[in-house]
């Protein structure tokens, strides 16, 4: 479970994030919409513990991120916009490396299954990552996140640059994860995808969370109108 209480981050006089209050429960996907610089990545970095809040608190499963970054990292997984792993290693080796650093000791069989679940085609498992397309790398990123068995998933524009098919597959995998009680926070530019996959949508502008709506209660066109009005 993810929780932000009056969470703010300033760089000098510039407020990157202003008084964010947000709770994302198990099985919920929250999509953060907003322009570049609206504060989406700052929010994710605060939950990851890479930056310290100026005021307020970010909690993961009730634990303060700023105080116990090492502890909260156990519960979360992160997929960036572009998953750049080790190009000299194969997909399977990359997954093996990252999951072993998460403290898991999967067999080759388990690892292959994880990659298959993430939607990577069989013949790519033993090819070097350097030759992968962006979508294929993203799938390895998902497999790494899933392998960690994290109950909290933080995604920073995970579908940007993916072709529609890959993007659609990605949405399906996320929905699947929520069935197992994963709480997902996803920053994105993709209004259509956000409405498709998310349970709730927040629109951010200049560090403020301007509005929060239920994805089911709004059409894509209405959402786009609201978005354009907000930013």
């Amino acid at each position: 479970m993810l929780e932000a209480k009056n969470l703010s981050k300033s760089y000098g006089s510039h407020k990157a994030l202003n008084n964010l209050n947000l709770t994302i429960g198990p099985g919920e996907i929250f999509a953060l919409l907003g322009q570049n610089g609206a504060g989406k990545t700052t929010t994710i970095n605060l939950f990851l513990g890479f930056i310290e809040p100026t005021s307020g608190i970010a909690l993961i499963n009730g634990i303060s991120v700023a105080e116990n970054p090492q502890e909260t990292k156990k519960h979360l997984a992160y997929i960036p916009e572009t998953v750049m792993l080790y190009p000299n290693l194969t997909g399977l080796e990359n997954l093996e490396y990252f999951s072993s650093l998460a403290g898991f000791d999967y067999s080759k069989q388990d690892l292959s299954e994880l990659l298959a679940t993430a939607g990577l085609q069989n013949q790519a498992f033993k090819q070097r990552l350097g030759g992968y397309s962006k979508g294929m790398r993203q799938k390895v990123g998902i497999a790494i996140a899933v392998a960690k068995k994290a109950k909290v998933l933080l995604l920073d524009e995970p579908t940007s640059g993916l072709d529609p098919k890959a993007s659609n597959e990605f949405s399906e995998i996320l929905k699947n994860l929520t069935l197992h009680g994963t709480a997902i926070l996803m920053a994105t530019h993709d209004i259509f995808r956000a409405r498709e996959v998310a349970s709730r949508i927040g629109i951010m502008n200049q560090g403020h969370l301007q509005s929060v709506l239920d994805a089911g209660s709004i059409s894509a066109n209405e959402l786009e109108d609201l978005y354009l009005k907000t930013v």
Binding site: L48, K74, I79, L85, L101, I144, K148
Partner: peptide, 14 residues
């Protein structure tokens, strides 16, 4: 530069 460090730091190794 390529963001791998962030993923790496999200595993359990400090």
């Amino acid at each position: 530069q390529n963001g791998v460090l962030k993923i790496l730091l999200c595993q359990r190794a400090s």
